[in-house]
């Protein structure tokens, strides 16, 4: 059997000596912004010393295609729901977004958007499973950010939150389980424009 050398062991979050595996999540993962790469050490299923970077940050258009506020929020919401494993809600969010983009049946799309955002933001199971992870200072946790997407998608005005730097995100996912880290990043509004774009550097 072919052997693959593992990196050495290191002390982990729970006080165990576990193998350290270098992993890269991205640059194309469902629900994550394209081009975002998370490099980290994986011990068991816990991420440590995470670093985030944008691939080809310079080659991207500086301005995102102009889209309505609600459509963008619905898109973000659908992508988060994909990662959270809620396919029926993600489907409804996409349907609402497509309806809004077509502009023919805007009222119906609006109603669908309100229904799905109400369902998501009031869901007790989502609050139970995604609540409390990825908390940063006053910015709230994953759940708060998802509810903010919901408010935006249903046309309510929300207060602006400052964009997060990639280092800030890295601090958030430090010590998180790999699935939680995926949820945390999916709940944030990250784009090469708003973030401090750092060129990808070579890892040896």
């Amino acid at each position: 059997m072919a052997g693959l050398a593992m990196a050495s062991t290191g002390p982990d979050r729970d006080g165990l000596e576990l193998d350290v595996l270098k992993v890269a999540l991205g640059p194309v993962l469902p629900g994550w912004p394209t081009g975002l790469v998370l490099r980290a050490d994986l011990q068991g299923d816990v991420l440590t010393s995470a670093e985030l970077a944008w691939l080809d940050a310079d080659a991207r258009p500086a301005v995102e295609p102009d889209r309505a506020h609600e459509e963008a929020a619905l898109d973000r919401l659908a992508r988060f729901l994909d990662v959270a494993g809620w396919p029926t809600a993600a489907r409804d969010a996409r349907r609402a977004r497509n309806g809004m983009a077509e502009r023919a049946n805007r009222d119906e799309a609006q109603r669908l958007a309100e229904a799905v955002t109400r369902r998501v933001s009031r869901s007790r199971t989502l609050a139970w499973t995604a609540g409390g992870i990825g908390r940063r200072g006053s910015g709230g946790d994953v759940l708060d950010r998802v509810r903010r997407w919901c408010d935006m998608a249903s046309g309510q005005s929300v207060e602006d939150v400052p964009a997060m730097s990639l280092d800030g995100v890295a601090a958030l996912v430090e010590g998180a389980e790999i699935g939680s880290a995926r949820l945390i990043v999916a709940s944030l509004d990250l784009s090469p424009v708003s973030a401090v774009s750092a060129p990808e550097h070579l890892h040896v």
Binding site: G3, L4, M6, T9, L16, E17, L18, D19, G44
Partner: peptide, 13 residues
């Protein structure tokens, strides 16, 4: 095995 062994010998012989 994961809890106790430093290296549960993934696919390293």
């Amino acid at each position: 095995m994961i809890m106790f062994m430093m290296n549960p010998a993934g696919l390293m012989p």
